[in-house]
Structure formats: structure tokens, C-alpha cells
Design a protein around this nucleic acid. Structure first.
Lengths: 220, 220
DNA sequence: CATAAACGCAACACCGTTGACTCACTTTTG
DNA sequence: CAAAAGTGAGTCAACGGTGTTGCGTTTATG
């Protein structure tokens, strides 16, 4: 984006604070979508004026939040090689990356949507295109029956939100692992938690979209 | 609910206006969750003071909205005979009734949740119990693999929201009807639209929850 | 028909948020 | 080291939403 770097592009700590603000915004807004900028600044350990210096208005901050989320999506989709890898593998990888962020996408979406008030689609065209490619390939491979990528994406995101909101150690996450005794360990192990959520997301989405097989293993 | 009825309990037009306000609130808040009471009053064709006369505060209005939705759920569950009818039939009936309301449940939920700020569960215990019965019976009948009723309910509601948000006449709604020419008619016919959405909701939910057959019994 | 309830309208004070501004101080960078 | 940029704390006015009150008018109920 930024072409060259003149003597002083952006000071390092300033950029660091921008990140702080965005993180704080996610944290605070998750608790209360109508929280004031002061609460966000407080959470970030900064003065409210600083927030205003970085983001001209509340709307601008929300836009930045949306853009960041969008960028992360795009990054994950690219990293998972949705165009070349086997579609089921790509789906799994994308899901893993997305869940790893541990933030409520719907939350951000809703807030931004409420702010921009029936503006353009929340996800950029690039992200939608990539997702479309993935779902088309899944359909072609017979993994799903649904043929409309937009519908697939909506269902995926809806379920993603639910998977995200499951409290750690819930019964749905233990699933059908062949080992029986590791459920206790899985409750606290972040890696196991991530794996369980990814698995639940993928199987649920495939099922919802008319996937032929919950194949991964036999069900209890 | 109210015990005795003194000479003049509530004047008829007053109660009518209460209904107006609630309807207007749903309409306006669907467009903008942060809409002011004035906009709601305007939509209802009433003065803002009247809204305040009926609902002491904004919070009270939202609570009434939630209670109304909850009551409707309970009514639908009871009407569908979730405890006695075959579970798949009950599921279909409940879905039909719920979709018929044509209002975004998640929207109301989110607004109320934002208002009460991490209060009690949005759905009453009675509704949750009835839903729990239904999903347990579905599990027992082998229609779904998921065993946690709360997870089932979450997925059901999440998908319900997506089904509700599909624009009329979208490709997902035409499904796999063997007849080819009725798609045009289905786009405008409210009955066909309801049927299509109900079918999509049921099949998607069953698939998501690990239903054995995406083809529900007697379907081509 | 008479009464009481409900309504519209207008005005009011209160409150939280927003956005802009200043000035002294600290940190980074060249 | 010194300048430039960044930050913190405080203050300010403006805005919009909320909740309340009073008064004249309309409307339903008995």
C-alpha cells in the first residue's frame, strides 16, 4: 500500500498504539457494543484524545476494525491455498486459522453494520471471491450439495459464530475421539480445543450444506 | 396474568396502541437497532410521550418485545405437539410456524441482549425445556446425531436467521423440485415461499446436527 | 350523555457521547 | 544530543436521546 518511506512515515510507537486501540476496541465492544470511546481508550491504557488522534471519529474506528478483519480473512484464505489444495483440506485449514483468532466476527459485523447503517457488504469483494472459489470446488468435489456460494458462506459464518461461542470444555467439543480419557485434558489444552472446534465447524458446515459424509469416523 | 378486573382495566384503544408500538418497534429496529424512541413512535403514528406512557423506559419496551417473542415461541411449540407427535413432524411444524412470523429473532435477541447487558437467557425456561424435549426426541429417533439440546437449539436459531434473510426467489429456495417450471411461480407465491424456507431450514438443521439422511424419507 | 381515561403537543432538565482544542511532558529518531 | 513527533490530562461546546410534566383535546366506556 504505502509506496516509499519518506524520512518519517509513522513512528513506531504510534503504530503500536493503533494496534492497541483496535485490540481494546474488540475487547470492550465484545462486552458492550455501545461502549464509549473512553472505555476503549481506558482498556487500551491510553487517553481518549489519543484515540481521537488516530481515528477521526467513532465511525472511522469501526471501519478500521472491519478492514482489519477483512484483511485477516483474506490472509487466511490465501494461506490455506483455496485455489490449489484439495478443497476439504483448504476448508479445514481456513477454519483452523479463523477460529484461532478467537474473536467474534458476527460481533464486529453487527457493530459495523449498525454504524454504517445498510452500507456495502461487510466483506470485501476479494474475500467473497476467494470464498466462492472454495465453495465451488467443494461442490465440484461432491463434498457439499449446496451450489450457491453466497448461501454457503452465510451458513459457514453463522455456524462459525456458534462454534466460537461454545464455552471451553463443553460436551460438543469432545466429539468422537477414539481415546476416551483425554477429554479432561482437552478441556484445558488450547491446541486440543482449537482442533475440536475446527472439527465441529467443518463437520457441521458440511452436514448443513448437504455433505455426503460426516465421514471422519463412526458416531456414538 | 392480572388478577382481578376493576371497573376499567385497560381501555381498548390503549391496548391497541401497545400492539402498534411493539410492531413499529420491530419494524424500525430491524432497520436500525439504535433507532430512537421517537422514530418508533413516528412509525406507530403516535406521539413519543405515548410510548413513554405505555413503557416506562426503553429497556421496558425491549423487555416487552422479548416477552412477546418468547410467548410466540411457546405457542408454536405447543401447537406443534413436540411431546407427542413424531419428532420430525413436530420439527417441521414448529419451523413452519416460526418462519411464518417473518421477523428476525436474532435481531430482537441482539438488541435485548445489548440492553440488558449479559442478563439472563433471552428465552424463557419453558421454551428451552420444550425445545430440549424436541431435540432429545429427534436424537432418540436417530434423526440427529448431536446429543446436546443447547447446541442443537443454537444451531437451529443460527440457521433460522440465515434462512430468514434469504431474499425471496433466491436459488436456494427452489431446491430440488422435480418440476422445472414452477420456480417462477414460487418466487411470488407466499405459500410456496414459506414451504421452501421451511424445507431448507429443516434439511439444513438436520444435516448440521449430523442427520443420517439429507433426503428426508419420501423425497425424490 | 357524562365521566374518566387516553392522547397530542410542547416544553423542560438531565445525561452521556462526541469531537475539537490546549499545554506540559515523554519518547523516538536522525 | 536535539528536534520532531507523540502522548496525557484537562477543558469546552454541541448534539441527540431520555424521561418527565402540564394542558387542552379527543375518544371510549358505563
Amino acid at each position: 500500500m504505502s509506496a516509499h518511506t519518506p524520512p518519517r512515515p509513522v513512528r513506531a510507537d504510534a503504530e503500536r498504539n493503533i494496534a492497541r486501540i483496535l485490540t481494546a476496541a474488540r475487547t470492550v465492544l465484545a462486552d458492550d457494543p455501545t461502549a464509549s470511546l473512553e472505555r476503549i481508550a481506558d482498556e487500551a491504557g491510553l487517553a481518549r484524545a489519543t484515540v481521537h488522534r488516530r481515528f477521526a471519529s467513532r465511525k472511522a474506528l469501526l471501519e478500521a476494525l472491519r478492514a482489519q478483519l477483512d484483511e485477516q480473512y483474506l490472509h487466511a484464505l490465501h494461506k490455506a491455498k483455496v485455489t490449489t489444495a484439495p478443497p476439504l483440506v483448504a476448508l479445514h485449514r481456513v477454519t483452523e486459522l479463523v477460529i484461532e483468532w478467537k474473536l467474534s466476527h458476527r460481533l464486529v459485523m453487527d457493530i459495523v453494520a449498525a454504524g454504517t447503517h445498510s452500507g456495502e457488504p461487510l466483506l470485501s469483494a476479494e474475500v467473497q471471491d476467494c470464498a466462492q472459489v472454495l465453495f465451488r470446488r467443494l461442490h465440484a468435489a461432491g463434498a457439499i450439495a449446496a451450489s450457491s456460494p453466497s448461501w454457503c458462506l452465510r451458513v459457514y459464518l453463522a455456524i462459525l459464530d456458534e462454534v466460537h461461542n461454545i464455552p471451553a470444555g463443553a460436551p460438543e467439543l469432545s466429539a468422537d475421539s477414539t481415546d476416551s480419557a483425554d477429554s479432561a485434558a482437552a478441556e484445558t489444552d488450547p491446541d486440543a480445543d482449537l482442533a475440536a472446534r475446527t472439527r465441529l465447524q467443518v463437520t457441521t458446515v458440511l452436514g448443513a450444506l448437504g455433505g455426503a459424509s460426516p465421514a471422519k469416523g463412526s458416531r456414538p
